[in-house]
Amino acid sequence: MMAFNIKLLAKNHKEDKFVSGHRLCPGCGAPLVPKLATLVAEALNYDLVVSNATGCLEVSTTIYPYTAWNIPFIHNAFENAAATISGVETAYKALLKRGKIKPEREIKFIAFGGDGGTYDIGLQSLSGAVERGHNFVYILYDNEGYMNTGNQRSGSTPPGSQTTTAPVGKKIPGKLQLKKNIVEIMAAHENIYAATATVGDYMDYMNKLEKAFKFDGPAFIAVLTPCVRFWRIKENATLDIAKLAVETKYWPLYEVERGVYRITRKPRQFKPVKEFIESQGRFRNLLKHPMASEIIQGLQDYVDRKWERLLALEEATKDKPIR
């Protein structure tokens, strides 16, 4: 493993693979996700081929006749980024075997998907591709809603967050369900490297990218990626809010390698999850709702339990890979 730092990346940097000029909102966290992935691949001397599910990242970076992708890119549909890349990766194997291609550098395969394309509509396609053991990295940029289509609820939307399909109303205080635990679902495929990351802690993200690229088999990284537009935050607050998610236990940074848990950030002191809630306009209506304190307390209890459980899992699985 090399320890990534800006100098090292700058030294190896020849040409931008994901270029500016795309139409993601100013301050959006999403472009950092491919940007850093392409930089890490470049530093490791890999070529990349990318698939991308329908969503903000895809529609804003490939408006015909323009493209922000200086690497081979395929968008197929919303729910099939993983199945699509599994076909590309298999073609690579087949054509290498038959001597029909002679790449100068090793090619790595990435599928990017939003939370809608991952937790919800694309879950089957992703599970199938991981179960089959294709060599690819699936990178989820999680902005906790269907943002491209105007902020609808997803399986990743947290309770009380304002969305157009689970709005905070006079009676119902918005979405009632907690987020689906996507990392556990992916880790349960066992032969996988699964990790969380945020765009706020890019060193941690890049180290995980390196592990993911080098892992022999499928890898999955869930990157919490604030959306300025629908989280109702300032353009310059994206990274701070992503960090706050870690500092409040809302989004712990950890990894699971073939069943072995490792927490990659252990803040000495945690802040209450309420600070995370209060930092974003999407919870404004919740905060005014009579059930606000009950819901926030529920979330606090949940993140506390989740953290304790993570610590226990780290301890229990040490040196005990499941495969």
């Binding site: 081929v49 698939s51 395929i74 197929n76 549909a77 099939n80 199945a83 699509t84 890349i85 599994s86 076909g87 590309v88 298999t90 073609a91 690579y92 087949a94 054509l95 029909k100 291609i101 396609s125």
Partner: peptide
Amino acid sequence: SAIVGAAAAGA
């Protein structure tokens, strides 16, 4: 979906 990916890869 996979066949679309494979064909786009030139297979």
